[in-house]
Write a protein that binds this DNA or RNA. Structure first.
Ligand SMILES: [Mn+2]
Ligand SMILES: [Mn+2]
Ligand SMILES: [Mn+2]
Ligand SMILES: [Mn+2]
Lengths: 234, 234
DNA sequence: CTCACTATTTTGAACACTCAAATTGGAATA
DNA sequence: TATTCCAATTTGAGTGTTCAAAATAGTGAG
């Protein structure tokens, strides 16, 4: 059985790859895992020995198919737990991440199956992240970051790519939650801000905040000039 | 923060003391924790260093007040989780122990508080074990083991002192569950068996099986000649 | 009082994970 | 081309938990 540490490393590598890196640099992994670089070198070698990752010395790590399977299972547990905490235990979506970070390593396959069943086999967690099914399959969506909007338009918020409780509470206060319909009023590329309307509120977001809001546009719009590089959590 | 291992040792020592030992012998702890004796010697020293236990060399260990507090908190988590799994997730009471054994180390204080609230601040877990409150207070009951019955009589099953799924399923099949009313028909001290009626069923139990059934007698009856020495789990 | 037996302790080692600090490799720069 | 710089690696060490196997202490039997 993979230890808690191994599961967290593998999940992290998966999320970094998901965010666009083919090969995750050791330094990035070190800061994401909050350990010193030498620790990553050691761990990556151990992970490679157990067949979960491959790596190019001085270049970075990449998951093997076995590693990806493990990552998907951990992510499945994490996201189902988050949704369970929100739906059944009435936690706020801003405070479930840390709890899930622990529980994801403690729940049995049987318990996760019960939770999945009780929740009606949901496809997405409270933050809009897709929940892999028991075989590891994940729904693919073509979302665009609000920061990539080039002109005004209308869309639905599908995902918030940040787990920080403070940001999530800020988003909640402004109605920026998955499912909410939003209208881009204007974009200021030089000032790096975007004006929008959500419900009956009108607000302005800066580029990095906007980058965390993933939207499904009602009509084709926006460009893919800047990559969706936010969202490295579960 | 106490590690998972420390929490399990402390809980085990508490339960052994609860079962009548003032000073828990190292060998007993070793077999209960499924480690070799030398490991216990090492661990007990470490636990003593952190102020959770005291010990007499070659005699045994005993919890300090700090150790007892920790034990009660772990037991609280364990038992609330068991009840939650039964009530909310519809697990069978025979299969919740192992799951709780893991989760008890992963849940936050906040989550346990939610669960406690959701369940209506219950006093007992599915096996009839008392649930300590947030301050560590536990209900005290004067229960007697069915194996201590000396003559016929009537009582209510209050606790089943065994976590083995097989035994629990056996008990379920015969209606031997907490809350069930039972009548002792006859006791055979030589043959070490006891005949009883539960609901509309009549059955015979041997001494060790009967020792695991803890009863609150309807009328004063039975003796306390043999100690309640079963029941070393949570 | 001595022997044998058993429970406990000691010793030396391992595994998983981590750090601090010194070293090295490679890429970009001058 | 030689230098500089940063990322990655190596080395040596420490913590927590565990084992196998040898040594020891205390008990009870003879
Ligand atoms: Mn985690
Ligand atoms: Mn999430
Ligand atoms: Mn446990
Ligand atoms: Mn129980």
């Amino acid at each position: 059985m993979a230890t808690r540490t191994v599961e967290d490393y593998i999940k992290r590598i998966y999320l970094e790859q998901q965010a666009g890196l083919e090969l995750v640099p050791f330094g990035r992994l070190a800061s994401a895992m909050d350990v010193v670089p030498g620790t990553v070198t050691t761990m990556v070698k151990a992970l490679a020995d157990s067949g979960l990752v491959g790596y190019e010395p001085r270049q970075g790590v990449r998951l093997t198919p076995a590693g990806e399977m493990l990552a998907l299972h951990v992510l499945r547990r994490h996201r189902l737990i988050e949704l369970f905490l929100v739906r059944v235990l009435r936690f706020d979506w801003s405070e479930v991440h840390d709890e899930a970070e622990e529980l994801e390593h403690a729940v049995s396959e049987r318990l996760i199956e019960r939770i999945d069943e009780l929740l009606g086999r949901p496809g997405y967690d409270p933050h809009g992240d897709p929940i892999p099914d028991a075989t590891g399959r994940v729904a693919q969506r073509n979302l665009e970051s609000l920061s990539s909007a080039r002109s005004s338009g209308r869309g639905t918020i599908a995902r918030i790519a940040d787990q920080d409780p403070e940001f999530l509470r800020y988003a909640t206060d402004r109605g920026l939650i998955p499912g909410a319909v939003l209208t881009v009023e204007s974009v200021d590329p030089i000032g790096e801000s975007i004006r929008l309307v959500v419900g009956d509120r009108s607000l302005t977001l800066g580029r990095t905040a906007a980058a965390k809001i993933l939207v499904a546009w009602a009509s084709p719009l926006g460009s893919d000039l800047d990559r969706v590089d936010a969202g490295t959590n579960g």
